[in-house]
Amino acid sequence: MSIQHFRVALIPFFAAFCLPVFAHPETLVKVKDAEDQLGARVGYIELDLNSGKILESFRPEERFPMMSTFKVLLCGAVLSRVDAGQEQLGRRIHYSQNDLVEYSPVTEKHLTDGMTVRELCSAAITMSDNTAANLLLTTIGGPKELTAFLHNMGDHVTRLDRWEPELNEAIPNDERDTTMPAAMATTLRKLLTGELLTLASRQQLIDWMEADKVAGPLLRSALPAGWFIADKSGAGERGSRGIIAALGPDGKPSRIVVIYTTGSQATMDERNRQIAEIGASLIKHW
């Protein structure tokens, strides 16, 4: 067993022997301040990774656009098919120029040779490549099948209805392509620590998230040296922004954090800054 596999296998073990965790309302004060600064709703939840206990939450059962955070769930569904012998990570998928959609920095470079399922998941999570996500959605049967996968996990809230990039439209009061912070946090925890996926697939999923290259201005910008984070960000229309993450000190994750916002007129930089400040408060009061 590799060191990384050992780390993920012992996530519940280490967490069980940690000192009790206590909620700190100071972080919620910052979440509410972010709402004021952005002029928009902000949803927040913080779960203990081992027990699933909610440590703090704000608007945990209000719907927010998922945006690209759905790509972690998508690759979880792909990995479940791999575990069941219905898919192979090494299978190569070929596609054409007509398949390319807006923001496809990886797939646009491989029109000639195609990409493997493993490479597509890596591109979808680490670079948020939209064509990679659409190609992977095709392998599982489309958005409705991802929703069905989530329902089978016990998540009857999260739903995907459309493809990239239309799913980022974020129309107010439109339930399409949305989740709730509580539902997303619980589902992410199941994917990373539950028995739904094999140990190898859980490790692969967290490795992809740990290698995320496009979430630097968010929670990662607030992390002290030595902290662990595996995350996936999302951005959408109407001032929408979000991030889902597993993080913790001492090089291992111990909490799940989900943050979503929508309806702001603020710039992307300002949305990023507010999420980073929430992260800084979380870490300060850990």
Rank of each mutant, 00 (worst) to 15 (best):
H24V: 11
P25N: 12
E26R: 03
K30S: 14
K30F: 10
D36N: 05
A40I: 00
R41H: 12
G43D: 06
E46P: 05
L49C: 15
L49D: 15
G52R: 05
K53W: 03
I54R: 03
E56S: 08
P60R: 07
F64G: 12
F64E: 12
M66L: 09
F70N: 00
L73M: 13
L79Q: 12
S80L: 03
R81P: 06
D83E: 06
D83P: 03
R91M: 11
I93L: 14
H94K: 13
Y95N: 01
N98F: 05
N98W: 05
D99C: 15
V101A: 07
V106Q: 11
E108L: 04
K109I: 08
M115G: 00
C121R: 09
C121A: 02
S122Q: 14
A124V: 09
I125G: 13
T126D: 12
T131E: 13
L135K: 12
L136S: 10
T138S: 08
G141T: 00
G142M: 09
K144Y: 07
A148I: 13
F149Q: 14
L150H: 12
H151E: 05
N152P: 12
M153P: 10
M153E: 07
R159D: 13
D161C: 01
P165G: 07
E169H: 04
A170H: 01
A170W: 10
N173T: 10
M184N: 07
T187Y: 08
T187M: 10
R189Q: 07
L192N: 03
G194A: 09
T198V: 08
T198F: 12
A200R: 09
A200P: 05
S201Q: 08
R202F: 09
Q204K: 09
L205P: 08
L205E: 08
D207Y: 03
V214F: 05
A215T: 14
L219Y: 09
A222T: 11
L223H: 10
W227M: 02
K232V: 14
G234D: 11
G234Y: 04
A235D: 08
A235W: 14
G236W: 09
E237Q: 14
R238E: 07
G239H: 09
S240E: 00
G242C: 01
G242L: 07
I243E: 06
A246W: 09
A246N: 08
L247C: 05
G251A: 04
G251C: 11
P253H: 11
P253Q: 12
S254A: 03
S254R: 05
I259D: 13
T261E: 14
T262Q: 13
T267F: 09
M268D: 12
M268Q: 10
D269L: 13
R271M: 14
Q274W: 04
I275K: 00
I275E: 12
A276C: 09
I278P: 14
I278D: 14
G279W: 12
A280E: 01
L282G: 12
I283P: 14
